[in-house]
Amino acid sequence: MSDDKPPKSRKTRRVNASDASDTPHNHLEDKKNQSGQTPTILTKGVVVTLWNLTKKYEVALKEREVFAVKESEVDREEVADAYHFLETPWERVLDGRFYKTLAMMQHRRDAVTVTPDTTPEEWTALFAAEVKRRATPLVFLTSQEATVPTLVLPQEETPIASSTPPTADDRAAIARYQVAFEQVPIGKLDDLRTRLIARLRGKQLSLAELSASLTNWELDLLSQLIRDGDLPAVFVDRTTIAFRPSKRASQEDIAFAAAALEVKNREKVQKT
């Protein structure tokens, strides 16, 4: 069973594996290669001891373990005179690293001693209560702050906020993608239908002419009229459409075709 494995050995293996390129053995090898001298046994021993102790504390901090003061003191005394034997920057950094972990362990020990069995969340709640009970909060009835600036509708030519004036390309893009929101009252629809039929009946128009002469809502209406057979129409060729002079649909009109027209005429209907 995996639970039977001693946790200590697992920890040690993991730490060593992650720092394989930075072990004291590698460092001592490098030192030997560079200077040509074999490090003394004393230096070797000091470096390895420092390394082991540093790792011991780093792992303990990571695992939230706390050592007794006595144990930390023994560890500290063991390497207290180590600085006499440290030569390279790597070794001095290791020394600093050890003292840093030692100090952090002291911090941890203090926190645990002062508030035994208190998780950080509990500590936060307890201290928050101390602050909270001394507060005399201000009263705000209006929960909404006026943080949103007053909305200003963009001008016709500048729908996007920009510090530079729009170029010709921008204007073309705006004109192409702008959607005109028009409202046509329902009561007026019959009247508009009649007028549209009167305008188009019996005429033969190219799609370009048609889109130039009609507005958005007129095109919508035209689709409905053609669909309902009120204004029969046929394609003469691929770009020309002919509207029948009479309402009566003949057999050849029942050939459905669709043409998507882009509105060029931007006349707007007055809101009523």
Binding site: W123, T124, A125, F127, A128, A129, E130, V131, K132, R133, R134, A135, T136, P137, L138, V139
Partner: peptide, 25 residues
Amino acid sequence: YCLRTLYGVPSELADPEYAVLGIII
């Protein structure tokens, strides 16, 4: 001018925020 409560009442801050405010104070 503004209005303030005389007693501790629930405010806009949550516990961790009060704790941090306490440390700041």
